[in-house]
Structures are given as C-alpha cells and as structure tokens.
Design a protein around this nucleic acid. Sequence first.
DNA 1: GAAATAGTGTCTTTAAGACAGTATGTG
DNA 2: CACATACTGTCTTAAAGACACTATTTC
Lengths: 255, 255
Amino acid sequence: MSRRRAKSEGTPADDEVAFLSAYDPDAYERLSLAVDLALVSIVDEAIVTLLVRRQEHPFRDRLSLPGGFVTPRESLDEAAGRVLRDKVGLDKVYLEQLYTFGACDRDPRTRVVSVAYYALVEPRRFVGAAASDQGTSIGRIEVPWSGEEGGLVIVRDAAGRVQPLAFDHGDMLGLVVRRLRGKLDYAPVGFRLLPREFTLLALQKVHEAILGRRLNKDSFRRRMLAQGFLHATGCMQIGRGRPAELYRFRKEARG
Amino acid sequence: MSRRRAKSEGTPADDEVAFLSAYDPDAYERLSLAVDLALVSIVDEAIVTLLVRRQEHPFRDRLSLPGGFVTPRESLDEAAGRVLRDKVGLDKVYLEQLYTFGACDRDPRTRVVSVAYYALVEPRRFVGAAASDQGTSIGRIEVPWSGEEGGLVIVRDAAGRVQPLAFDHGDMLGLVVRRLRGKLDYAPVGFRLLPREFTLLALQKVHEAILGRRLNKDSFRRRMLAQGFLHATGCMQIGRGRPAELYRFRKEARG
DNA sequence: GAAATAGTGTCTTTAAGACAGTATGTG
DNA sequence: CACATACTGTCTTAAAGACACTATTTC
C-alpha cells in the first residue's frame, strides 16, 4: 500500500491518494497548540526554575514559564527545542514531555492546549542562561507536600516573595516535581543536574533537594556505587575537609 | 484583576478586556487535535486492547485505536470521555492521559496531534463492550521486551494473526504497557482490571500479565496484605481446590 | 590539635525468595 | 483415596538504616 505524506495537493494515483487530495483540513475545528517549558536546576540545594515576566495580556506582568506556539511544520519535540533555543538560549539539554494541559478556560484569549515539557539543566548553564537574558529570572520552588502526593508548589523570586504564575503553570511545576521524584528511584536523573564530574555528596544533595527529605549517607553511597552508573575518575575535589573522589556518569553524552 | 473567558467578542472595560477583544485567534496557525484511547483489560491472562477497523482513508481497513477530534468547547479529558462513551459505549472507567504524539507526518491527511489516553476496564465490561459494538474487536498484546525498556508491542487478532496498526497506535500501546509496569509497583492499578471482589491469585495473575513474568506467590501475598489496600470480605470463591478468600479494594468507588 | 568531611566495617532490621508443611475443597 | 489449590511458618539472603570508627584535609 503506497501512501503519500502530502497535505491536500497531490496527483491522484490510487484510492487513498485520491482521498487525501480531496481531504479538507478544516472539516474539524482546529485549535491553537503551545508548548511550555519547565527548566529545572538545583541552586543552593533548592529546586529552581526559569521564569519570564509576561509583557502582554493575558496575565501581563505576571511570571510564567517560557513557551510558544507550535507551528504546523514542526513536531512537538522540535517546538520545545526551538523555544529552548530562542527564548532561553540553551541547547543540548535533557528535554522530556511532561503532560498536556487542555482545560477549556486555561487561556482567556482563545482555546489553547499546551504541551508541557521539562528540561534538566546543570546549575552553571542554568544560572548563565538566566543571567544572560534580560526578562528571565530564577524562581525557587518550595514543595508543600511529601512523597509523590502531588499538588501545587510555591514559587519565590530572588527577594523571597511568593509569586503566583500565569495560566496553569503552577500545576505544571507541581507535576514536574512529582515526575522527578518518581524517576529518581530508577532513572539516572541526578546526573543531568550536575557538572560532568561530581562528588557523591553533591549527588546526594541533588537527590535530597528533589525528594524534599534527608537521605541516609551510608546507604545512598552503597546504592549509587552498586548501581554501576558511576565511574570513579581518580581525581579529588578539595573542600573544607578530606578531599572527595570525583565521579562521572558512565554513559557517554549527557546532552 | 477581572478576566473574561470569551474569545474575541466582548465589551472593553479595562486594559486586559480591551486586549482580549482585539485578540485574533488566527494570529498563529492552528492545527487539528485528536484523542486516541487505549482500552486495556486482561483476558485469559493476557493484556488485551479494543481495536476498530478503519472504514476510511488513511489506513483504510487497518485496525486502530478508537479516537476522535477534540472540539474547541471540550477539555481533553472530556473529549476522551466522549470518545469512550460514543465509540465504545462505556463510561465510568479509569481514564488517564498517557502521552501526546506530535510527529509532523503521523497523519498523512494534515497535521494532527494526538493526545493518547489509556483506560483500565474490568474484563466482563470490556468483553461486553467489544461484543456489543459491530466494528470493534479485541487485540491481544504481546510484549517482546522485558521490564520497562519500552518499545513496540505485537498485536494479534482473535485468529492469532499479527495485525499492524494504523498511525502510531503501536507506539501508543507500547507506552501504555511501559506505564502500567511502572505504576504497578506503587499504585493500585490491578484492582481496576478485576471485578469488585477477587482472590489473591486473580490479582497475582493480573500483575503477571502486565509485568510479563511470573511472581513469587508467597511474597506477593505478603506484600499485598501488608499494603493495606485489600479488605477481606469473609466470602469464599470455590474452585478446583480449597476455596479462596475474596477481597475488595479498600477505597470506595472505582469509577 | 580541633574541626570538618570522606570513606570503611559491622550490627540490626526489614523485605523478598525458597520451601516445607498444613488445611480444605473436588473427583 | 489422590489431587489441587489455599494458606501458614520458618529459614536464608539481600538491602537499608544506624552507628562506630578510621582517614585526610583545612584552620
């Protein structure tokens, strides 16, 4: 069965091509589709995200996640990558689809469905991206629930003021935290929030920040080393006490 | 800040209302949004899903998941519920958003982004829905990968023939299985695939079907009873050997 | 040397797997 | 009775938490 990947033009050759030629793309009402990005990093042992101050209605002057509309010629992943590049100035970060928000009244302008993505960014690059671009700021995330209960999170600006977010972006951040907490058990997400070389304590702090609770140092150590993800470099990091071994994530590129 | 929930008509009152009044919903190109439903149940200790034979191009005569377009006046969840009711004839089942598929060429007609949902249905109702509606059939799912690796699954019809699915519906089913395997560890998903009262062995068979491997009977028992989700009814189910205690899920309604 | 952090060894507790053995139904 | 399945008890093993102890740096 030969199938064409065209829209509505095309030379009829068989049954299906004829159908596709005649197909009216407006037979069903169309909607606006957006992507919103929750950039996540760890700064001062807290989960942080990148926020932009909205210049226009709706929610003018309110903080929001960076986002943009999906064009018909790009996939969702491409749209998310484009927003990341054009609005945040980053590329090659870990990017994953989170959830699609489709309440009718989530955008007062018109019907806009938004596909939320989250990105994990190493702190250095994150702070760099936030500082280089005027209009972006860092929001600290406080999680008022434990485990994977889920719910809203509290976002504070640099001055410590609680900031309500535009649209349903608060829900998106809550879901990001829940997803990360779930993934931490079985997936190597911590590495994406650290520079290429890191100490075991640094990795533990990342886990603690995401989980929102202290972890047992001994068993964390054992668990991580037993998993086999870590590769000792032989180099040491000097600090306030005895120097600590630096490790790397075993798998090659980390975006 | 008063905000209106209108589209483009409206009487200007303040700054934002004026903006919303002037807003042109076609300023950005719009696209078609669909929902597709992966109905999941367990029949003969195998994962099954409900399939519909496509009557129209594209992919005419091929099996696909039931789906439909999202209208501008309904939320995504409502659209999924509507498809479930109108195309499958079921309601009050556990329904959850899975993932949004947005490759540019996933539909040869025009750009269609699809939000995939999955539903967990008790076998009796599932078989009833499949039998009552002409045009629907049951597909048995074989999972050629282990654990939560992910990937495509093989779908066989009642005659045992492998059936390729329309669009990217094969990917959707693969993702459903992965999601279910992940959830099984911590969420009470097994109960949604069983009648209200069930034996521990029946629950174990459900877990085994989803996980694709045999489980240790003793520790499965202990684990389930320790979790506290189960409530012994005092009633017994007679079978080929000693009668087994019937249990219920502790929490109230199950959809 | 005091303080701080890194890393090791070991004991206890807990959960899972294995398996023997008992209970209670069917044919 | 044999056979099948349900359920119980216990032993072993593995992982996690707790804690004591040693090691190596800065001040």
